[in-house]
Design a protein around this nucleic acid. Structure first.
Lengths: 338, 338
DNA sequence: TTGAAAGCGCTAACAA
DNA sequence: TTGTTAGCGCTTTCAA
């Protein structure tokens, strides 16, 4: 039983009112060519007067496509995803697609496989912005675009998967070179295990080696504030004389700030800290983290374009796009103490 | 043209395989009573073997309900919503409903009215967890539940609207009384203009008046870190001797921390700070904010239950539920300097 | 450039 | 307890 007393107008009502056939209305809706101005205007007017909204259900059923794309985010707690989403939508919306957003952590908590919800919705495509267990994408049957440097990009899924990401290895290098250029020599890395995290670690290590310095890496598990704190504690225990820390992301950097403060070390006077993601956190005046900006909005937009392209030509070869990124210098970095 | 070569199995295939009729399969799917064990098992087996997934589009079209509820969040940047969503889903999922989440800020940016996306999706109901412009909910036509103390709860929409919220006025009182009990007398409020923000301000003011103290309120606009910073600057300019600050939320509290540090004031030795929301931010060791925990997960679950109830009985009188909340004491509060 | 008509996969009476 | 049968509102050939 419908909640509403007045039934919604259908395409049929619009057709009647405009004095045309259902099919013509359908054509106008998807602004097909070869429709006369007069008819088009009549239809548009009727739509307006009736307050007509097409039924997605009916359209999905008839066309066998939902015009919905699933977007899987790793964890809503870490605010890096907000810009990615904005970028995705800036391209998807005008193309008539709706983004259906899910959080891997929540999805996993509810017991089913992370993409099951999307498949039940019959999304037309999926954007993956999270690290997945191997095999999760087998037999998914819809195009997949990976946003961010996730390992599964190449393998898994047994078919062409497009990858659009910031060049996180470059990011790790930029962060490290910034500290080296300031004069630091004892620079350590708080690693986080994730697609981007691993790339950032590689970037850090290559920059250190290129400078003839020995990399010091701790952590390598979770990418949370708590993990950043523990890794920094372990680091300061083992290497009390570090003057620079490159963290795998901003929340880990915030964890490191706490560890440093506990030991009476001040930032940036005693130790400089660099984060990654340039998340809203980094910009908070109280934290003022120097951070690598991954331009998530651009990544999102590019990922959406890749998606639309693949929807057009399902058999095109896999496409891999690495976007440049840059460092935002704030108050958490300075030359080492003399 | 479908992306996949093999067409998905339909309810008809399942029926054939199980040796029953379509309707019986439909009944089993919605686990209706009065279906024999044998047939049910046969159907379930067939579903399993075929890897059948019901088509939401077809079901929505036939039943005129999408089993989807729209959830409108104020701003993904402020992580308070994560627990609310978890609470909502803990009730909605088992009931067979899918949450479709949108961000008011993003939605507004894309130029259309914030709920238009939901209406286009034909959601069965909407959860509002944001402050809306007047008139936004007129003629929406589906049940609405407001999560949080949003002004529009009572009026607007011209019909019964349920409200489930934390008792934010109590929250404001709890935060203030905590400081008073520690011995503070010059306690100020950084106000934010939002439903919960206004209630928190009232709570602060009533606690001050009850203690025979004069309320000092600044801010009252945005609820961001930047707004918290400016309001705190203005406050410290006008009232340099405050020893306690109650912020309308955690991000504003973080803004205040920066303003205090700039003036050489330390927290909590010189000034104590209390936030609201007990968001992930508050728990970061580096911030360690004492904060009012609004139990968002409980609010979410209760809101979802209210929704299901209203879907059952659309004409029930409006329901308003205020949940208790409590204070989480961390390192940002202490007795005032002597 | 437009219209007629046949489904898309499911639900929900109604019959049996 | 189970099967039959109309649609739900739209897309999409195919003809006109």
């Amino acid at each position: 039983m419908p909640t509403d007393a007045t039934p919604r107008p259908t395409i049929y009502d619009v057709a009647q009112r405009a004095g045309v056939s259902k099919s013509l209305v359908s054509l106008v809706l998807r602004d097909a060519p070869h429709v006369s101005e007069a008819r088009r205007d009549a239809v548009l007017a009727a739509i307006d007067e009736l307050g007509y909204r097409p039924s997605r259900a009916a359209s999905a059923l008839a066309s066998q496509r939902t015009r919905t794309v699933g977007v899987l985010i790793d964890d809503f707690h870490n605010p890096w995803f907000v810009e990615l989403l904005a970028g995705l939508r800036s391209v998807l919306d005008p193309a008539g697609y709706t983004a259906s957003v899910a959080d891997l952590a929540l999805e996993t908590a509810s017991g089913r496989k992370p993409v099951d919800g999307f498949l039940a919705q019959h999304v037309d495509a999926i954007v993956i912005a999270a690290d997945l267990a191997p095999g999760t994408l087998e037999r998914v049957g819809v195009p997949i675009v990976v946003a961010g440097l996730r390992e599964l990009g190449a393998r898994d899924a047994g078919r062409a998967v497009d990858v659009v990401a910031g060049d996180d290895e470059l990011g790790g290098r930029l962060a490290t070179e910034h500290l080296l250029r300031l004069g630091h020599t004892r620079v350590a890395h708080l690693a986080g295990h994730s697609g981007p995290g691993d790339a950032r670690r590689r970037g850090y290590e290559s920059a250190m080696l290129a400078a003839g310095l020995e990399p010091i890496t701790t952590g390598g598990g979770a990418t949370t504030e708590a993990a950043g704190y523990s890794a920094a504690c372990a680091l300061l225990e083992a290497h009390p004389h570090v003057t620079g820390i490159v963290a795998a992301n901003d929340v880990m950097a915030v964890g490191a700030l706490a560890a440093l403060r506990e030991r009476g070390l001040s930032v940036p006077a005693d130790v400089s800290v660099v984060g990654h993601d340039d998340s809203p956190l980094a910009a908070y005046r109280y934290l003022a983290l120097t951070s690598v900006d991954g331009h998530s909005a651009d990544v999102g937009a590019a990922a959406a374009r890749a998606l639309l392209r693949r929807l057009d030509s399902p058999d095109a070869p896999a496409h891999r796009e690495l976007l440049a990124l840059d460092l935002v210098v704030r108050g958490s970095t300075a030359p080492p103490p003399t």
